[in-house]
Amino acid sequence: MSAPALRLQGDLWIGDNRLARDLKITAPAGRWTCLLGPSGVGKSTLGRLVAGLPGRARLDGDATAVRGRVAMLAQQDQLLPWASALQNVTLGARLRGAPADHRRARDLLDRVGLAGLHHRRPATLSGGQRQRVALARTMIEDSPVVVLDEPFSALDAGTRMAMQDLAARLLAGQTVLLITHDPLEAARLGHAAFLMTAQGSRPVNLPEGPTPRDVSDLAVTAAQAAIFDALSQRCAA
């Protein structure tokens, strides 16, 4: 199944509460698009809408229909406490009644730095380790559209960068919507980016070239500074 482009336009609501008006967000097919903006503006709500999750949120406007074709990694790892790391990674297949690919699940756990911990339950793992299990569970799905809601926020700086690099490789060719508060993360991973506020959305300039970009690249440093400045101005407004 080929990865589609996403089009998200209109006013974003939860019940009778409008979070953002006149959004105009286009995520190119097979690329990473980053959503940035202040807390409470509706970035996670928009991600849940793209994933087709139930709730009171709605987008009054135009949106690409992708339900049933989306994998999502939420801010909370949402691991089953009674299941092992391996069982959590293969949960999607079991829920669909399909054979679980244990070999690939073990390989993904190894690649996210959890070799030897396949049979550990979530309660025995650190917060960062749990987040890496959830990341492996998302990547094994091979969905054409992937929503990542602050997927690396629980990781230390070194592990965060390694997991960013791994996710960029393993999700290449899929349409990824990355919700982040980290300007450097957007500058390294994004092919497109948008700043969301209650008044709307606007595109953010990112460096050219393949991702993940080198953190020492001057273009990445400049993009990080520009995004941080834009966020600071929006929060001060």
Rank of each mutant, 00 (worst) to 15 (best):
R111W: 01
P122D: 14
Q129G: 04
H118W: 15
A74E: 03
P81R: 09
H119T: 07
L125F: 10
L73K: 09
T90A: 13
Q76G: 05
V66C: 01
A83M: 13
A83W: 14
L73Y: 05
Q78M: 08
A63C: 05
R111Y: 01
T64Y: 06
L79P: 11
V112L: 11
H118D: 14
D107P: 00
L125G: 10
W82P: 06
R121L: 12
R94M: 08
L73R: 08
G92I: 02
L108Q: 05
A98S: 10
R111K: 04
R103Y: 00
M72I: 15
R106K: 08
L108V: 08
S126A: 05
S126F: 05
R106L: 09
Q87P: 05
R104S: 08
D107A: 06
D107L: 03
Q87A: 15
V89K: 10
D101S: 02
D101I: 01
L91P: 11
R120M: 04
L86T: 08
A71W: 06
L108G: 06
V89A: 13
M72R: 10
H118V: 09
A93L: 03
L114Y: 04
L91E: 10
A115N: 04
R103P: 00
L125D: 11
R69M: 12
G116H: 09
N88T: 15
P122R: 14
A100R: 03
D110K: 12
R94S: 12
D107I: 00
R103I: 01
L108H: 07
W82Q: 07
Q129R: 03
P81Q: 10
R69L: 11
A105F: 09
R121K: 14
A65T: 01
T90D: 07
R121A: 09
R130Y: 12
S84L: 13
G116I: 09
L114F: 05
A85V: 12
R111L: 03
R67Q: 11
R96G: 13
R111P: 00
Q129L: 05
Q75R: 00
R120S: 06
V66P: 00
L114D: 03
G113N: 14
W82N: 06
A123W: 11
L91S: 11
P81F: 11
G113M: 14
W82A: 07
Q75F: 00
L86Q: 09
L109E: 07
G92F: 02
R111V: 00
G92E: 02
D101K: 01
A85E: 07
